[in-house]
């Protein structure tokens, strides 16, 4: 099995290296100390597994995955437990909390090789239960456009619209298309700032100019830039609760 280890700290890569040395069938093909290097190495070398830190300079672990056409199989390695929910939303194999034991590490590796079977994963279940309330919201959205990457800070997003398999992100009069489901994006956004007002619309509540009611269950919101968006009944309930 060919693996890449991504962490901005030397010592943190060192411990992964040390634990991996006990597994003869595993070979480290690259080590990266930041997100850019990781994107490049993963795209070029197509590893079977990536050990990925989350808090790194320039690009964090999730953003690295976002920029890859083919997502590798990933085990997150981090000191922060508040990203656990999002980690499993991007289908992480496991989530190792620093510092971790060799047993815990080997268990994660077993899951990656598929030898662990489908038995329940107690460590991860506990983690998810404990961190649900402390989920760290997304700070920025990355959108690839050919070879360019647009970075949109989430507070700058006006509203988001679902379009088939894509979401169209509206920010400052510009529109960015991203391959993602609206429901997935919704869970990673700050619930104090973004509300799903409709099956296919999420709105930044700081952009709301007014709410207009036409009939009992027919309402629209008007944003500061004049955009009008439909509001469903449950969307209206959510708005009422927030405002």
């Amino acid at each position: 099995m060919r693996v890449i280890v991504v962490d901005d700290e030397d010592l943190a890569r060192g411990i992964v290296r040390e634990y991996l040395a006990f597994h003869q069938n595993v070979q480290i093909i690259a080590e990266c100390s930041n997100g850019f290097e990781a994107v490049k190495a993963i795209a070029e070398l197509k590893p079977d597994l990536v050990f990925l830190d989350i808090q790194m300079p320039k690009l964090n672990g999730f953003e690295v995955l976002d920029l890859l056409d083919v997502r590798p199989r990933v085990i997150f390695v981090t000191a922060y437990d508040s990203y656990a929910i999002r980690a499993f939303e991007v289908d992480a194999i496991d989530y190792l909390l620093k510092p971790f034991s060799r047993d815990r590490f080997d268990a994660a590796l077993l899951r990656a090789t598929g030898e662990a079977g489908n038995e329940p994963h107690d460590a991860v279940d506990n983690l998810l239960r404990n961190t649900r309330a402390r989920n760290t919201p997304l700070e920025r959205i990355l959108v690839r456009d050919g070879s360019r990457v647009h970075v949109i800070p989430t507070p700058m997003v006006d509203h988001i619209e679902a379009q088939d398999d894509y979401v169209s992100i509206h920010s400052g009069g510009k529109k960015y298309l991203k391959l993602e489901r609206l429901s997935e994006l919704e869970t990673s956004l700050d619930p104090k700032l973004f509300v799903r007002i409709h099956r296919s619309h999420i709105v930044n509540i700081e952009r709301l100019a007014r709410l207009e009611t036409y009939a009992k269950d027919s309402r629209i919101v008007v944003l500061n830039d004049g955009t009008k968006l439909p509001v469903s009944r449950s969307g209206y309930e959510k708005l009422k609760r927030l405002l």
């Binding site: 700290e9 010592l11 943190a12 411990i15 040390e18 000191a79 620093k98 510092p99």
Partner: peptide
């Protein structure tokens, strides 16, 4: 946690 991880590596 990060410091403990460094110690563990060292």
């Amino acid at each position: 946690f990060n410091s403990l991880n460094s110690i563990s590596a060292l």
